[in-house]
Amino acid sequence: MSGYWAGILSILAINVIFAYGIFLPVATGQLNLGGAGFQALGAYTAAYLSAMFGLPVPVTVGVGMVVAGVVGFLIAFPILRTRGVYLVLATFAFAEVVAGTILNSETLGGAMGMSVPAFIDWEIPVIVAGFVTLFVFYLMSTRFGLTMRATHDDEVVTDLMGVNIRMVQVCAFAIGGALAGLAGGLYAHSFSFVEIQSFNALVSIYVLLYVLLGGTQTAWGPLAGAAFFTLLPELLRTVLPQVKSFLAALVGIEEPVGPPDDSWRFVILGALTIAMMVLRPEGLITRTMIERLRFRRSSSAREQVA
């Protein structure tokens, strides 16, 4: 496998795990716009343990995941007292505080970043992403998953049904934080280098967009969203120059044109976001869609039996 595709598979796997980390709180009705903060916690924990103590990868990544999860659990109590706009701001602020703290930390390399000695190839993130996907599907099929989705729809009634909604919210937030940390740890080892600039506010925004555009009603949504928005830029990388030369030919420019600006890809992501929110705000994959597919399958199976 070429280095190019190995890199894409790694980043795809990491993005899927990261997206699930944001999906869990969002499916519970908590918009988490601080994803990059949790990812940075996992990445820097793994990088530090690997660089300073030479610990093996499963340990560094595991500890990174636990650290992000525990921090998520601890801040969930005060942070989830806020809701709506306040929650968005609080999670956003949390990520900025993490980034700012790391930037000012001599031990963690500050603005210079840190190199990570142990390297993992694309297979490991892909396998881990597979397990995480299975785990999230399992979680959503349990009563816990049911109460998560119920909390998303109506907190007051869910509480009256006997659900400890605070517990459900805190758990979803903390598990989500741990998954984002896991994605960070894998990132650190896959790219052998961490710098705080790669965990900026835009990263938090992107991952939330993956989840919301993919759809928050089922565990298929983040998978679709992360896959689509990781692969789309790569697709555009090859397609956009062709589009540009085609357009140039159309208006009668004969001489070869330079490749289009890299920013066009983000313009397209933004435009897709706006269009989706107008046309299909519930996201690409909805519950009704899955139910329909399942129903068609089971009814056709029944016909075969008959």
Binding site: V26, G29, Q30, L31, R83, G84, V85, V88, H152, D153, D154, I205, L208, L209, L212, T216, L269, G270, A271, L272, T273, I274, M277, V278, P281, E282
Partner: peptide
């Protein structure tokens, strides 16, 4: 619901 409430916010991110 809470995610629907976020629609304008998400559009503005776009």
């Amino acid at each position: 619901d809470s995610t629907e409430h976020a629609i304008p916010l998400v559009s503005s991110l776009g």
